[in-house]
């Protein structure tokens, strides 16, 4: 039972972590919460939905294989990345020097816009998504690990490793770190702020898109308002780990997923989401800067 919930929590946590990275990266550079991030994630799922349709895969009860999965994953991530850049350009760039409050409102506006545009274009009803592997699983002791959970974990870990490599070992990654450390000094050293910010949005949104596809396949459903709850959870994860801190977001996501699964199993399934928030509030009161704090807040 415990290990079963741990596995479930890890799979969901990996997805939370991917979304949380986007929140945390934007916060690390622009110091505001990109509320439209959850909607980018939702659009990622829809991208995959239409790509599967385009490839002629039956969405209801259909099964996809690994190459088909990647064939949908990569273009969806690209499209989401582009949408992230566009979002920043239209909704956030004009008010970059304004107060944080206006950025927040603009983000809420962008979220409303994206969610309702999706509702208008795609319809508000829940649509089915095809499955990756036909429900096969492996058993270790009493613990059932489905292939899809394994796939979600593996893909999340691969993406996070890729991000880690990018941030630590490329020039653009270095620039992103420099800007989030000290904006003024970074600009004085000749770093192009706009480019760094666009890159941040592109990466965060692409990861959110990837998370969207995996959630769509994991739960077999896609609907326009799916971004709201996932966004709140991922934001919670980002704060739990220490906002502005990328490893923190990963840790926070995984922790939140596990806490939720265990709380849902041992305390009460109905209160699962409430448990996550209670833990968050207590954690914040005891450690106001999150688990892995960034140098300054």
């Amino acid at each position: 039972m415990f290990f079963q919930q741990l596995v479930n929590g890890l799979a969901v946590g990996g997805i939370y972590a991917l979304i949380a990275i986007g929140y945390t990266m934007v916060y690390g550079i622009l110091f505001f919460v990109n509320f439209a991030h959850g909607d980018i994630y939702m659009l990622g799922t829809y991208c995959a939905f239409f790509i599967f349709g385009f490839m002629g895969i039956e969405v209801t009860g259909g099964v996809i294989n690994v190459p088909q999965f990647f064939a949908a994953l990569i273009p969806s991530m690209l499209i989401c990345g582009v949408m992230g850049i566009a979002l920043e350009k239209f909704a956030y760039r004009p008010i970059r020097n304004g107060s944080r409050l206006s950025a927040m409102i603009s983000a809420l506006g962008a979220s409303l816009f994206l969610c309702n545009t999706a509702m208008y274009l795609f319809g508000s009803q829940t649509k089915p998504m095809p499955k990756l592997f036909a429900g096969e699983y492996i058993t270790i002791g009493n613990t059932i690990i489905s292939y899809i959970q394994l796939a979600v974990l593996v893909v999340s870990i691969l993406l996070m490793l890729a991000l880690h490599f990018f941030i630590k070992h490329t020039k653009l990654g270095k620039a992103i770190r420099a800007v989030s450390d000290d904006q003024r000094a970074a600009v004085l050293m000749g770093i192009d702020m706009n480019r760094v910010i666009s890159a941040t949005f592109a990466i965060g949104s692409a990861l959110a898109g990837a998370a969207g596809i995996m959630v769509g396949i994991y739960y077999g459903a896609v609907y326009p308002t799916m971004g709201a709850v996932a966004g709140i959870k991922a934001f919670t994860a980002a704060i739990l780990g220490g906002i502005g801190n990328i490893p923190g977001a990963m840790l926070g996501g995984v922790l939140l997923g596990i806490i939720e699964s265990l709380g849902g199993a041992y305390i009460s399934f109905g209160y699962r989401d409430a448990i996550a928030f209670f833990v968050l509030i207590i954690a914040l009161c005891l450690m106001p800067t999150g688990i892995l704090r960034k140098g300054r807040t």
Binding site: I243, Y271, F277, L280, I281, C285
Partner: peptide, 28 residues
Amino acid sequence: LPAMRLKGDYLCIVTLGFGEIVRIFATN
């Protein structure tokens, strides 16, 4: 009470969590 110790975005998420907690309790 928790708001005494927190500000800005942390306060945002705590209040947001509060709203969700109330709703979850009402549902359960």
